[in-house]
Design a protein around this nucleic acid. Sequence first.
DNA 1: TTGTAGGCGTTATCAG
DNA 2: CTGATAACGCCTACAA
Lengths: 325, 325
Amino acid sequence: MTIATVARHAQVSRQTVSNVLNAPHIVREDTRRRVQEAITALGYRANQAARQMRTGRSRLIAVRIEPTRDGINGSVLDRFLHGLTETADAAGYRVMLYTAGDDNQEIATYDDLLGAYDLDAFVLTGTKHGDPRTAWLAGREVPFVTFGRPWDAPESHPWVDVDNADGTAQATRRLLDTGHRRIAFIGWPTGSGVGDDRHTGWRTTMAAAGIDAADLRRSTEDGIAAGEREMRALLTTAEPPTAVVCASDSLALGALQAVRDTGTPAAVIGFDDTPVAAAVGLTSVSQPLAAAAARCVELLTGVLDGQPTNPHVLLQPALVLRHTA
Amino acid sequence: MTIATVARHAQVSRQTVSNVLNAPHIVREDTRRRVQEAITALGYRANQAARQMRTGRSRLIAVRIEPTRDGINGSVLDRFLHGLTETADAAGYRVMLYTAGDDNQEIATYDDLLGAYDLDAFVLTGTKHGDPRTAWLAGREVPFVTFGRPWDAPESHPWVDVDNADGTAQATRRLLDTGHRRIAFIGWPTGSGVGDDRHTGWRTTMAAAGIDAADLRRSTEDGIAAGEREMRALLTTAEPPTAVVCASDSLALGALQAVRDTGTPAAVIGFDDTPVAAAVGLTSVSQPLAAAAARCVELLTGVLDGQPTNPHVLLQPALVLRHTA
DNA sequence: TTGTAGGCGTTATCAG
DNA sequence: CTGATAACGCCTACAA
């Protein structure tokens, strides 16, 4: 079934059908309705391949799916992907997946995807300092949005991000409000934008409260085991903390285990509000992932339709209170 | 850049370039090499839209992405998706994502996707008794594979599945081998194919060992809390079990918590070998998800290329021993 | 408003 | 083995 079938069925020219589809305002009211009826009656759908060949646009956006490194934090990308698929859907776009081992492979994939499928845009996650991917895409003038700030040059391209510092700040304030003073922070080594941001929220909030907590900061790789190890170390010092803010739920889960094993009561707050946190009653900072995905699509459609929108979106996370703090 | 650019560059006709791409064997050796060189030199990529218009094939397969219900088990689909994307990639196919609230919506989406993008095939996950989706697709003669058996009519369409019963059987045998006799099973209510299958493995293995364990079976919804509740109940009976096999890692995690809280030593084995299980040292049954994804793609390409392959694949899971059993 | 002509890049058909 | 030609379904002029 083609546009001609619809035209015949509605007693109009093919051109009119095309107009109803692409420029409804220039078609007379009743004609338009008649055509619309024919379209639904026949279940007609414009063939994207033909449309793309003519317009050069595919209504396809690509997102990379990463190997599950850490099962707990992996669900974050999962939820983002779900949100993205849904919002893209609503905006008339489809999401295409790809994988890549490293940045070079990923760039090669861009080339591939662009050449073969004429992708309209890319959504990148997990930006880092000096990201070569954004440079390549920008150089080719391929539309893209990142979920995560470009840590080097904030103005260089459209992005959506969550205010990580505000998240840990909220967590720290909550602990201060409930009487805690010795509040530790278990995070990642300096160098990752996200990790540094989460650290900053704790540090500045503690400083604002006039508390020197430099000795309560621990840096480690992510994971339950690492969290447990660090928390155990903190709890066995001369002046142990009474609470801890963690850069991830994995770390927090480990910390929680250390707290329980050593029998020392201490409040624990995680980050990402993963379903595991919900299951074990862990208080955690929740990222608005669905909203982030929606804003990404919004930014993208804005760029694709040539409408100027504010290209930088910083969303606020929310603290979800449960049993551990 | 089009096929004509390559043809000019290699001093041949457009048709010859097309032949090199689609039927290399009918082109003379040196000509083929010259064309190949031109292709790589120019970085040429066949335009899928044009190709699709001509051949009616898009080299696109669709997979549904589900909302994360349970964060722990959610990672299973995640890993499957990753494997699928990778293998599809290698076979020259791309993965397209879609969401749907229920079966009817999903079927409507099939219609959409098929009409607009001419999808080559679908991969369905989470099959259930009397699945309307497979019926619709079969009725339209759309190629598809399911990851999960069609529980009603095993022969009705190509599928790949993991032998769940064998997984719990392995777990149960391991516990028997290490001296356990009172081995409990915490699973889901009867009615789901996967759940019943996992229950069967435990039941038959116990029966084969001559042990009556009917009183040690508990059915509940999935989740850590449910697992903890059920295990706690089991442990406080007159004759508590010394070990438990769970239908999921979530349940097992809960059971583990109950074991630790009550101070009763008991072995625990989970199912799915999620990264969380790895993190906490939980012994678990591992599904070969990458292999499953690969077989799905294999089956699909077989169908699409008209090659007859065995359309039913049952993969064996493996028990991953850690600290809890 | 409607109809007609042309072309997007590819592949299939058919003659050389 | 190579070269010309038509066709896939759609959209954008342009003329009516």
